[in-house]
Design a protein around this nucleic acid. Structure first.
Lengths: 149, 149
DNA sequence: TTCGATTGTAACCAAAGAGGATACATCAAA
DNA sequence: TTTGATGTATCCTCTTTGGTTACAATCGAA
């Protein structure tokens, strides 16, 4: 099991918006080049991030994207949830129909649901503690030091 | 993204072994009935748990499975790793080839790898804190209270 | 040694999801 | 009206998951 690359793509996308916004309006063409993929993939992620209220997207000439919220109000968990639509169903999956005639099968959910929720909770809590703004600060720092060489 | 149901199936499988071992040797037929799936699915998970040294499997008449290690030495993380073979690649995925010509693309790994490792680490730590033996204790307790009604 | 029960595994299959590509409609601004 | 951008429909390939059938390999006991 792996978390979709849409998550790291979305982080890169948002980082690009902030790092390059002074140069020009950032668009799907540019980001797809940075990520190494197709502009349509980026636009689909635009749609998910927009639906979550994280970015504003504008069509037309001089269109492109910008943050809808300050970067220090956006956590990695916000991004994760925006981009991973299955989240509503929970991180863990049970087999559809454990037998009601077997005592163990019948009670698996009672025994496990709390534990699985706790595991999922720690994942989400850790992600929530990380801010997009800190990612951007680190990125800017690395880029500056690169140029000094 | 969801964690494969093999994980919860494996937990149920191991719970069945301990809860029903006094009655008779537990086999793939019985467990598949409890889970509500096919015996072959269960046998494939047998193979993964055996490779991880968690269970012993015996062929032939009066064959079946038993724990290779006491239940209080088996954590949910042990089970997770035994059953989810992709774990070696890490929980998160990057797009294959972020552009080296874009400063942001070029430095994404430097900026993100540490954070992603931390998130994955908290997930694993939480799973490691949960023992199979506790799951079994809870299961036995629920089953006993059920029968009192 | 033979028989029955069980695991091990090969060979398929269907469904779903991920990532990708092309094409084109839609929209905004100059 | 033209240009450049997003929105989205459609199609494609791969991989993973879960499932099923079939049968070989193995063990225990009669």
């Amino acid at each position: 099991m792996q978390i979709s690359s849409r998550f790291t793509i979305a982080i890169q996308l948002l980082t690009c918006i902030e790092v390059y916004k002074s140069d020009s309006q950032v668009n799907s063409e540019f980001i797809s080049y940075s990520v190494g993929t197709n502009p349509v993939i980026i636009r689909k992620i635009f749609g998910q991030l927009k639906a979550a209220g994280i970015i504003n997207v504008q069509r037309g000439g001089n269109g492109g994207v910008s943050l809808a919220v300050p970067a220090d109000k956006i956590t990695l968990y916000d991004i994760y949830r925006a981009v991973d639509s299955v989240e509503a169903e929970g991180l863990f999956r049970f087999h559809e129909r454990p037998s009601a005639k077997c005592a163990v099968g019948r009670n698996m959910h009672s025994v496990m649901d709390g534990r699985l929720k706790m595991i999922q909770g720690t994942l989400e809590k850790e992600m929530s503690s990380m801010l997009l703004s800190d990612v951007i600060i680190d990125m800017r720092y690395i880029i500056e030091n690169e140029q000094e060489k």
